[in-house]
């Protein structure tokens, strides 16, 4: 019951939060002295030509009117037109969302597959050499600037060794879009050349993004496992004479995982933030690069569209995590 109440409460705030977010971003993006109509009109355009473009995109209206119009069109499913590409924002974003999700989801899976066992090992052998090494690793993961790490990887693996491509999502066109997830599309079409090309393009950005994510997971898993080891029921199991390995992997891990799972929201946040920078370095055609480009070109509708999508994803993920948290660990709900 409490869960349902929580979800309802959160959902009532969902729309106001999004509108508030849009309002902030709208205000911020529209006080730039940039007049995108000037760029669109081309060099040497007269004021009349510029005014015509302004009118067409509604840029001549007062800001509150522009914002109201924007909200109304969003409700009807229209995110507006990009001032640059002249295409609907939704269409541009649609190709970008799978690119970013593919990157972040693969990263989360890899980070979890490696991070959880390493966290358990660190806890089980605490104060051993492995534990100290892992501690150095996790501290580094959260201290290194992702754009610098990305450049180091490029320098080493792409430029010096030539093992991986430098940037981009595929060497040429990639697979024909079905889901928009290149890995999946390549598998569906059974084209293994494209598949290996797509995978090789994923290696460096995933490595860059996975480093801090993995560091976070290792930390939380280690702390969770230690918490569980010190709790009473483990003492009981030990007293029952179960081997240490069984206790750690079977009983302790299950409890420790709860703590880690509820951190997925946090990790997802780290990844989305990381994607903004990492996509810029790797020229990855995802949401992050789209956001940076839109901001730099004052493409208002692009900035708003990105905010809307990211905000929605982010709020939903956090809601999901809270529900999980509430279900697994009722103490923390509310």
């Amino acid at each position: 019951m409490r869960i349902i109440a929580l979800v309802l409460k959160r959902l009532t705030w969902f729309v106001p939060t999004l509108v508030g977010l849009l309002l902030i971003v709208f205000t911020v993006s529209h006080i730039i002295p940039a007049n995108p109509a000037v760029v669109l009109a081309g060099e040497g355009a007269t004021q009349a030509q510029i005014d015509a473009i302004k009118e067409k995109f509604g840029l001549d209206q007062p800001l509150p009117v522009q914002f109201w119009r924007y909200l109304k069109s969003v409700v009807s499913g229209d995110f507006g037109t990009s001032l640059y590409t002249q295409r609907p924002i939704a269409e541009d974003l649609l190709t970008r969302v799978p690119a970013t999700l593919e990157l972040t989801l693969i990263t989360i899976v890899i980070a979890a597959l490696l991070g959880i066992p390493l966290g358990v090992i660190a806890a089980a052998r605490r104060n051993s050499f492995i534990d100290h090494a892992l501690r150095f690793f996790t501290v580094s993961g959260l201290a290194i600037a992702s754009f610098w790490l990305a450049i180091l990887f490029q320098l080493l693996f792409a430029m010096k060794l030539g093992w991986t491509p430098l940037q981009g999502r595929a060497d040429s066109w990639g697979p024909d879009p079905v889901t928009g997830f290149f890995v999946i599309d390549a598998i569906i079409q059974g084209d293994w050349d494209i598949f290996s090309d797509v995978v090789s393009h994923l290696v460096l950005p995933v490595m860059t993004l996975a480093f801090p994510a993995m560091a976070t997971i290792v930390r939380f898993t280690r702390a969770g496992v230690l918490d569980a080891i010190n709790s009473n029921y483990v003492l009981y199991e030990q007293a029952m004479g179960l081997p240490q390995r069984v206790i750690v992997w079977k009983y302790v891990l299950r409890n420790a995982l709860i703590g880690t799972v509820t951190q997925i929201g946090l990790i997802f946040g780290i990844l989305l933030a990381g994607a903004v920078v990492v996509e810029s370095v790797f020229d990855w055609p995802g949401l992050g690069l789209y956001a940076v480009n839109s901001i730099l070109r004052s493409d208002y509708n692009g900035i708003m569209g990105f905010t809307l999508i990211t905000g929605t994803i982010f709020i939903l993920v956090n809601l999901l995590v809270d529900i999980l948290h509430g279900t697994i660990d009722p103490r923390g709900a509310g």
Binding site: W13, T17, S29, I32, T307, F314
Partner: peptide, 18 residues
């Protein structure tokens, strides 16, 4: 909550750019 609904860096980029 509103401020936390998008990655901090995105808002920071938008504001710094403005």
């Amino acid at each position: 909550d509103i401020f936390l609904a998008v990655p901090q860096i995105v808002l920071a980029i938008a504001i710094a750019q403005t």
